[in-house]
């Protein structure tokens, strides 16, 4: 039986042009196209590229087109979804990673191909990524790596470093014979024996943030108060979670100069909230900010505060809250924010 492959590429590799056509919408055609023709040859007769899906780089970097792209992918009935190679192209790499991630999340086998330094690499979710070269000149060897990976992924076999796998590898809970405490004792004996490398937990890698430009004049700026300290109206009317928050909320500050004890409280589950509940300004400093606003040190305070609970919140959700807060605040003309964190 032939394995049905759907291949995602960008508008450039689909032959539609470069930056001038970076805004073309999602589309697809039957069969292989561009680098897909060579990929089909490498895959041989057991595989068929049944459709090629593409999109302009400008669109593909936005999450809103993902549903359209996935619908095109799904319509072709793939056994395997293959994206790239994207080399070091940022927007293309992001799209390749997100399409592969979305397919994998639906239970479709998927693999993406890009250079390890491609900024999109961390967006591949649970889909594996194999390394391409840095530039399109290295298409040949990149496709060979990808074709070998497609064969393995289609067969349900794991991909490892030997297959050119790069990027994040999902960590899964497994049950082992020895307790964690017994393993800790074995590890301490290994350390005493001189092993400085052994560990069950790899050191985390955090992404780098380019700082924003400063505001030129705070005395005319619109400034927002935001917090992960889970301060909400006393009844917690919107049921903010005390741990592992999946959402954030907004509460009006219009006409308010203070946040009285008894009217507001923290539902954060990560620390004792006795102090926060005695005086909610210990979490959201509205009293001081209003005073500074009245004195002209702040142009104007934003009319609401944004809040979530930062307790065991996954980095993925926290990143999403940040993106959503930024978008929300920018729409409303906010120029700077004070974020209190517990």
């Amino acid at each position: 039986m032939t394995t049905r492959v759907v291949h995602y590429i960008n508008q450039f590799f689909a032959g539609l042009g470069g930056e001038d056509t970076a805004t073309v919408p999602p589309a697809s055609k039957a069969g292989a196209a561009g680098p897909g023709r060579k990929l089909a040859q490498l895959l041989g007769d057991d595989f068929e590229i049944v459709a090629t899906v593409w999109c302009g780089d400008d669109h593909a970097a936005g999450p809103e087109v993902m549903d359209d792209l996935l619908a095109l992918v799904r319509a072709a009935g793939p056994d395997v979804v293959v994206t790239g190679p994207a080399f070091t192209s940022g927007r293309y790499g992001l799209a390749c990673a997100r399409v592969a991630a979305a397919a994998a999340a639906e239970g479709i086998a998927a693999v993406a191909c890009m250079h390890p330094d491609n900024p999109g690499i961390d967006e591949a979710g649970t889909a594996p990524v194999v390394a391409s070269g840095e530039v399109a000149r290295q298409m040949g060897p990149s496709l060979e790596t990808l074709a070998a990976a497609v064969r393995k992924v289609a067969a349900g076999e794991p991909l490892g470093a030997d297959d050119g796998r790069v990027g994040k590898i999902p960590r899964r809970n497994v049950t082992v014979d020895r307790t964690s405490a017994e393993r800790a004792v074995a590890l301490v004996l290994a350390r005493l024996g001189g092993d400085r490398e052994a560990t069950e937990v790899p050191l985390p890698r955090f992404d780098q943030v380019t700082p924003a430009q400063p505001v030129t004049d705070v005395t005319t700026a619109l400034v927002a108060l935001v917090t992960e300290g889970a301060l909400v109206p006393d009844a917690n009317p919107d049921s903010l979670e005390s741990a592992r928050a999946t959402r954030w909320l907004r509460y009006s500050l219009d006409g308010r100069d203070v946040l009285p004890a008894g009217e507001f409280r923290s539902v954060h589950g990560g620390f004792s909230t006795v102090w926060a509940n005695e005086d909610p300004h210990r979490i959201v400093p509205l009293d001081a900010a209003r005073q500074l606003e009245a004195e002209g040190a702040i142009g104007k305070l934003h009319g609401e505060y944004l809040v979530t609970a930062g307790n065991g919140t996954s980095v993925g959700n926290a990143r999403r809250f940040g993106v959503e807060w930024a978008a929300d605040l920018r729409r409303q003309g906010v120029q700077a924010a004070l974020l209190t964190a517990t």
Binding site: T210, A212, W325, L329, V334, Q335, A337, L338, A341
Partner: peptide, 19 residues
């Protein structure tokens, strides 16, 4: 938020983590 262009002061106690 900083990445999106909103300068944001993080008021927190565990500054080593923030850094």
């Amino acid at each position: 938020m900083e990445r999106a262009g909103i300068p944001t002061a993080l008021l927190c106690n565990l500054t080593s983590i923030a850094e």
